[in-house]
């Protein structure tokens, strides 16, 4: 019968002696690849912000050609909320590049930091994502309802339904994110247990 430690050593030896392709980047290649990565990140960020830019341009343009001050207030709030959201995404955005100090953090510390950042983003989604968008949408809906009273039957009823749907959808998004945040918290607790 083979001795277990000899089996273990055989397995480790088999693992360590498996053929490798000898991939080795020169320093020039590292520099070139790093700048390609940077450029990819730049374009990816640009795509993410493009949707916000379309919203700002659309409501900014309509703002200039709308007389109703109530509707203009709604549009202005949407533009302001979207700008705030983009700024928050930029500040809170996932760090796609490993920090220089990655070698100083153990895997648990590193993963914990990442999970805490993601958990806080999800748990506080009202303060940076939903909250800034909601006032503009509600005011705009109410303003459109107000403008159509007398011309559209049950205008206020439809307005109340639209606003209600928005609030329910936002509430559901919040709940889903809170659930995801709780799941991340469980992973953080697991890491804490593992380090004790």
């Amino acid at each position: 019968m083979t001795h277990p430690s000899s089996e273990e050593n055989n397995m480790k030896q088999a693992w360590q002696s498996q053929p490798t392709e000898g991939v080795r980047m020169s320093i020039a290649e590292v520099h070139a690849k790093a700048s390609t990565f940077q450029s990819k990140i730049f374009w990816r960020n640009l795509r993410e912000y493009a949707a916000a830019a379309i919203v700002v341009l659309f409501f900014g343009y309509r703002f200039a050609y709308t007389a109703d001050p109530f509707i203009r207030a709604g549009m202005a709030l949407i533009v302001a909320g979207t700008c705030y959201l983009v700024w928050q995404l930029h500040v809170r955005g996932s760090s796609r590049e490993l920090p220089q100090e990655a070698g100083l953090s153990s895997s648990i510390d590193f993963q914990r930091t990442q999970l805490i950042r993601q958990r806080d983003m999800l748990a506080n989604i009202w303060s940076w994502y939903l909250g800034p968008l909601l006032p503009g949408m509600v005011v705009l809906m109410a303003a459109v309802g107000h403008a159509t009273v007398g011309r559209v039957p049950h205008a206020w009823l439809f307005t109340a339904i639209y606003i209600g749907v928005i609030v329910v959808v936002f509430g559901a998004i919040d709940q889903l994110n809170r659930r995801a945040a709780r799941s991340l918290q469980r992973q953080i607790d697991e890491l804490d247990d593992a380090s004790r």
């Binding site: 980047m25 320093i27 790093a34 990565f37 490993l98 220089q100 100090e101 070698g103």
Partner: peptide, 9 residues
């Protein structure tokens, strides 16, 4: 790349 960047620290 991460290794190269980290070695500065």
């Amino acid at each position: 790349i991460a290794l190269w960047r980290s070695l500065e620290a």
